[in-house]
Design a protein around this nucleic acid. Structure first.
Lengths: 344, 344
DNA sequence: CTGAAAGCGCTTACAG
DNA sequence: CTGAAAGCGCTTACAG
């Protein structure tokens, strides 16, 4: 187990100074050609690679992006990570990932952990608990220490920073409108509890679409699901109302559950019941029938978030102390309605 | 944007030496109680946190685990990451994730990138291309530089290191046996191309199960799928043979596709056709009918892999140069057959 | 009880 | 053209 070779060792072996080695390896102009070649050959032979940690210390930047998300076993989030990772790598950045498990405490812990110099900036999506508590001190604290933060999807207005989102309300509106356009009259809503920002927004979109189409709003058509496990009972009860001819679900899990419940109850999808869902995940593609979805374009969100963060990191070097108005931006990713079998 | 405070600054402010500050913060015994309290209070007030990069340099370890996997938008892999992340965090480690996109070159690049001192050890699953090329020099090179490597799932015998796997062959055998036990006679196999190690092993298990049950092996019942996109045609052709009464798929995507094709062709699952698949992913749970699967227990694999790596990292400090026999271990995770609707 | 010094692995002004 | 020195932020023997 030969440990990694260092500049120091090369210097000793070759009987030159450390500076000379360093400069030779960086191909500095002021080192003699001969020396340079000698050093480079030696370094190559011993597979010398500069120690990244030392470089980070020296440069005061790590070329690493910290990602904090609620969970990773989740199609949307892994899609976002995928996007981030690819843009990061393209620009010479690495990504370290921390999971909050939708817990406020873990989110705080993770942020504190990474704000110790390990990363140059954050890309994050808030945990449910954080959204519920509305406590964002950990984020403003990180930012006040000069850590840029880019939030995506589950964001908050209480923090001024770059954000990448979709227009949840509008997309929901359009989805519901598309159901109405297809002649559906009584549209149920399967949504999350209110404190989940995106759930709330999607609910708003639903409500507005009904309103603008003069469809009476009926609270009994709305189910707010706290956790997925015991939701089928509630959905079953809901679907006992046979006049319901469409369901709008804020995520595909709710949608596929609804379809399964419908199947069991002898309700045909899409004939008797149209189903449309948020999140273009893998389930929608393989469900029977396949599910019409609003694509959140996680990959794209990740890419944009990474680009914004990296741009900020690279430009920071220039502006330095010039902390005038910060001009944060919020990028809204266009969603797409992907028509499949569950609507017609 | 006040930058992070350092020990040096604290020392200057408090008019003590850097060493005194450092020791006070680490609560060293040989600092006077008064000084200690003063320093600690000051540090707390300014949210002092030691710079992790500096610590890494000093300690020559980063407390970071590098993960290299083929892709992240994949239920199994994200499950493994989940397991790794949780054990890592428990032990004070972070994880950085690199994606090989199933490309050999990217895998090599990523390994080289991380072997520059950024991490203490690897947990990885081989890319398809690497398995095809059988070129593992990047791995042995990393190891020769003292980087412990733990491989999981897609491993190779050509590298001696710790491994976490399931018994793919046995699990496949048992799955096929379970089909036979249920009276299925003509069992088709949907598998990957041979160079994917796990695909190969599962194919072996299938073959053996047939053999031990005196069922004639029929090459025409086997489809080797290179990529998922155009496989339904092939599956459709296969299922024209109505005598086929069961399908064993090496992953759930193949299985769900088979079910969809069967549906279209008027073949009933499970009545006419039983379907069983490897990988207990999310699709199997929500497919109609739900799919009987062999659970690969990714979370567990990740946890075990992380434990092995961390154990090795922490013990290395002790043994040091004592490079006798390395005693690597291969842990075999028990799989589970999860019976659902697609078999009966 | 406190501090100067060396060192982790590197870079880069500055002398010479 | 080459090298000594300072420094990134920290720790830790070693003096005193």
């Amino acid at each position: 187990m030969k440990k990694k070779i260092t500049i120091k060792q090369i210097a000793r072996e070759l009987d030159v100074s450390i500076s000379t080695v360093s400069k030779s390896l960086r191909n500095s102009l002021d080192i003699g050609e001969e020396t340079k070649l000698k050093v480079q050959a030696f370094a190559k032979f011993y597979h010398y690679k500069p120690n990244n940690i030392a470089l980070s210390l020296k440069n005061r930047k790590t070329k690493t992006i910290g990602i904090i998300i609620p969970e990773i076993v989740h199609y949307f989030f892994s899609t976002v990570i995928n996007g981030i990772e690819h843009i990061a790598k393209e620009n010479g950045y690495s990504v370290v990932i921390c999971l909050s498990d939708d817990s406020f405490d873990k989110e705080v812990l993770n942020m504190e952990l990474l704000t110790n110099g390990s990363i140059d900036g954050f890309i994050m999506s808030l945990s449910k608990e954080t959204q519920q508590k509305k406590d964002f001190h950990h984020i403003s604290e990180a930012m006040s220490q000069g850590m840029p933060v880019v939030m995506f999807d589950r964001v908050t207005e209480d923090i001024l920073c770059d954000k990448v989102i979709i227009n949840d309300e509008l997309a929901a509106y359009e989805a519901v409108q598309s159901l109405i356009d297809k002649g559906r009259k009584k549209i149920a809503l399967l949504t999350t509890v209110d404190y989940v920002s995106v759930g709330k927004l999607r609910t708003n979109g639903y409500t507005k679409a009904l309103f603008h189409n003069n469809i009476p709003f009926d609270e009994n058509l709305i189910i707010k699901i706290e956790n997925i496990d015991n939701c089928s009972v509630k959905i079953e009860e809901l679907l006992e109302d046979k006049a319901i001819d469409a369901v709008f679900a804020v995520n595909e899990l709710f949608a596929v559950t609804a379809i399964k419940v419908a199947n069991k109850s002898g309700i045909k999808v899409p004939e008797d019941l149209a189903v449309i869902a948020f999140t273009d995940g893998i389930i929608s593609k393989y469900s029977t029938p396949t599910i019409t979805t609003i694509s959140q374009r996680g990959m794209e969100m990740g890419k944009v978030a990474a680009k914004i963060l990296i741009e900020r990191l690279e430009s920071e070097e220039v502006e330095l102390e010039e902390d005038e108005e910060e001009n944060y931006k919020t990028v809204v990713i266009e969603t797409r309605l992907i028509e499949r079998e569950s609507t017609n």
